[in-house]
């Protein structure tokens, strides 16, 4: 009876590992593209060629050209820089900021914890994207403000996770032992608490990359993020949507890029979660 169970666990572990490798490589390819995008474009993404405008996909222009005759493939590749980097930057900021607030609240406790957690409840009570639109609207458009708006709505989730993890850590005997060793607050936080809580927080941020990318592109689509002529997928789609019926590829190309990237990052996040979960690893 036990042998089949072991076998299943082993197979499961192996598939998780394979998935991790596959999606890891795919994500790395995406990152590679966005880092070296200038060198990978077949044409100059900003070069207008009105003779060749609105050309449908063809062997020369795989994704066709837009209404100014710019090569869509090149524009999508260049757009990856803004889209992927701002997403990673956004996730990075949110993770660090949220974790800092959460660990501080969990460790310090008392009134400051109550105040900060009530504030985070307030943020959580709003529907996220609507609130982000309001914030971005007040701050005015621009990629920077879109990022600020999304940071404002996303940090509470991380603060919650970090706080509850910190509270759990605080009760562990090894943390008490560290206090008894005369370690100060900073040493305890950086040497004992953070290393023990980064796992779940990291998994959450990996799972959030896809969502954040969508939300950032969404804000740009609504004109609250990156502004044309900057090549950014959301604003590119928005730019061409009036011509959707006549030249659909101009909208579909960046849409496809968003779809693929979000998919890859989501699957990678899922896989990392499975991998980090000891139960699915069958130890």
């Amino acid at each position: 009876m036990s042998e089949p169970t072991i076998r299943i666990q082993k197979i499961k572990k192996d598939t998780v590992k394979t998935r991790l490798i596959i999606f890891g490589i795919l994500a790395l390819i995406l990152l590679f593209c966005s880092v070296f995008c200038e060198h990978l474009t077949p044409y100059d993404p900003y070069l207008q060629d009105l003779k060749n405008a609105k050309a449908p996909p063809s062997p020369e222009h795989l994704f066709g050209t837009d209404r100014y005759g710019r090569d869509m493939l090149s524009r999508v590749i260049v757009g990856s820089k803004t889209s992927i980097f701002s997403t990673l930057l956004l996730v990075g900021i949110v993770t660090v900021l949220g974790t800092m607030v959460g660990v501080f609240c969990g460790w310090h406790g008392k009134w400051i914890d109550t105040v900060l957690m009530r504030i985070s409840d307030m943020f959580l009570a709003f529907p996220g994207l609507v609130f982000a639109m309001a914030v971005a609207g007040v701050l005015g458009g621009g990629l920077q403000n879109a990022i600020i708006a999304l940071v404002a709505i996303s940090w509470p989730k991380y603060a919650r996770i970090a706080r509850s993890q910190t509270l759990a850590q605080k009760e562990t005997p090894y943390l008490k032992a560290a206090r008894l060793s005369g370690s100060g607050t900073w040493k305890i936080i950086f040497k004992h608490i953070l290393p023990n809580i980064v796992g779940p927080i990291f998994v959450t941020s990996m799972l959030d990359i896809g969502t954040m990318m969508m939300e950032l592109a969404g804000l740009s689509f609504l004109g609250l993020g990156a502004k044309p002529p900057t090549a950014e997928w959301g604003s590119m789609m928005s730019d061409a949507r009036s011509l959707l019926s006549s030249v659909p590829w101009v909208t579909l190309a960046p849409g496809f890029a968003i779809f693929v990237s979000v998919m890859i990052f989501n699957l990678l996040g899922d896989t990392i979660r499975d991998y980090a979960d000891p139960k699915s690893r069958g130890r």
Binding site: P173, A177, S183, K191
Partner: peptide, 30 residues
């Protein structure tokens, strides 16, 4: 913290009283 140089405790659960991410040497020398 100064008081803890004069008073120490051995905890009820030995394994749990060492940080799983630090070596025993780190814990002893802390």
């Amino acid at each position: 913290r100064k008081v803890y140089a004069r008073m120490q405790m051995v905890f009820q659960t030995p394994t749990d009283s060492f940080d799983p991410r630090c070596t025993l040497g780190d814990g002893i020398g802390e």
